[in-house]
Structure formats: structure tokens, C-alpha cells
């Protein structure tokens, strides 16, 4: 696997991260070496092995349909970097 310049650009964009050239090169090299190290997993025979998603012993953790929270507009807005009239404010989105 080679984690090249195009890959890091694509991945950084998906993760909404953006670096100057030198940082990008450093991260690229780091990830590339981690991926090379991870290659060893290719040696494990996993035929017929189900992926393990969770080690929690539970299933069906459900709650009943009751309104128990909400109405905290002022607390929400107090935490917001920018807000107006109870709305969160962000740079204008196209479309």
C-alpha cells in the first residue's frame, strides 16, 4: 500500500482537515508507515470468521417513547460560537 499525495488529499478532505505542504508530507509518511506495519494482518486466515462488532453482552437496549428532554435552547446557544435568535449561525451554504 502506498499512501500517496492524492490519497492524503482525498482523505484529509473527507475528514475536513487541511495542512500546509510540509505537514501534509509528514502525515503522509506517517500513515504510510503505519499502513505498512498493519499489512501483517494480511497473513491471518480469516475465512469464515464473522467480524466482531461489539463485545457488549447486550442486545435490544431500548427506551420507551416518552419526551424526557429538550427545551434547552438558551443552554445550547450559550455554548455556540455564533448564533442568532435561537439559531446556530454558519457561513452561508451554497444551494
Amino acid at each position: 500500500m502506498s499512501f500517496n499525495e492524492q490519497t492524503i488529499k482525498t482523505i484529509a478532505n473527507l475528514a475536513r482537515l487541511k495542512f500546509p505542504k510540509e505537514d501534509e508530507a509528514k502525515f503522509m509518511a506517517d500513515i504510510d508507515s503505519i499502513l505498512n506495519w498493519v499489512e501483517q494482518l494480511k497473513g491471518v486466515d480469516v475465512t469464515g470468521i464473522e467480524p466482531l462488532v461489539s463485545v457488549s453482552p447486550r442486545e435490544n437496549a431500548i427506551r420507551s417513547d416518552v419526551v424526557t428532554e429538550g427545551n434547552i435552547q438558551s443552554e445550547l446557544m450559550a455554548n455556540a460560537p455564533e448564533s442568532v435568535q435561537g439559531f446556530y449561525e454558519v457561513p452561508r451554504m451554497v444551494e
Binding site: E69, Q73, L76, G86
Partner: peptide, 17 residues
Amino acid sequence: SGASAEFGAEQNTHVSF
């Protein structure tokens, strides 16, 4: 979440953390 699913409330009131 336990916030109300009702339509038409004032903005950001039917919202939990």
C-alpha cells in the same frame, strides 16, 4: 433521544444534548 418529535416548535427547542 428523549426530545419531542413534534412538528412546528420554535427553533432549537425540541433538541437535547
